[in-house]
């Protein structure tokens, strides 16, 4: 959503880059090679794990966008408890009707939620919850010019 807050600046970026894969784009498989991938969210389950490893393999510059990707943030709050305890709490203790832990259809939870860079190498970090549009714009502009952005003037953890 923060990305969309770039508003008309999106056009500036669109002039230099094309969007090849995104929840907004109707393509189901990750392309063979992309120059830049922005990744949001923490790595929580097996599906995330496999996805991010695949993305890394097919990406030149990987950017962690937002606190969840960088610090684990709110999703990582479950890390103080075991994955089983979390499932137990969500699907048994707080449920009155047919309590059961789903085995199919739902990806297997990792023992711990992990920031992206603990799983694969990350090149650029844009912290913030959410990162301000200015930070995203600055980072993208710099990256498109082939420079590594220093974002400390634009954003911070939590901001």
């Amino acid at each position: 959503m923060s990305f969309l807050d770039l508003d008309e600046r999106l056009i500036q970026i669109a002039e230099k880059a094309s969007l090849v894969y995104s929840p907004l784009v109707d393509i189901k498989t990750f392309p063979d090679w992309v120059d830049l991938t922005l990744v949001e969210g923490a790595v929580s389950n097996m599906e995330d794990w496999e996805k991010i490893r695949n993305v890394r393999q097919h990406t030149h510059t990987l950017v962690s966008l937002g606190d969840c990707a960088i610090t684990g943030n709110v999703p990582s709050m479950r890390n103080q408890f075991s994955a089983n305890a979390v499932l137990e709490r969500s699907y048994h203790e707080n449920i009155e009707l047919y309590p059961q832990i789903p085995r199919d259809m739902v990806p297997h939870l990792l023992a711990r939620v992990r920031p992206v860079h603990e799983v694969v190498k990350v090149d650029v970090f844009i912290p913030g919850c959410p990162p301000p549009a200015d930070a995203i714009f600055f980072a993208l502009s710099e990256l498109l010019e082939g420079r590594t952005p220093d974002l400390s003037a634009y954003t911070r953890f939590g901001s």
């Binding site: 709050m77 400390s152 911070r156 953890f157 939590g158």
Partner: peptide, 24 residues
């Protein structure tokens, strides 16, 4: 967890991280 903290934007630890360019 800065995002959900009462001290978000008033916190010295968070402030130092920004000032010292700690990105992760």
């Amino acid at each position: 967890l800065c995002a959900v903290c009462v001290s978000n934007n008033h916190c010295e630890l968070q402030g130092q991280a920004q000032a010292l360019g700690l990105s992760h």
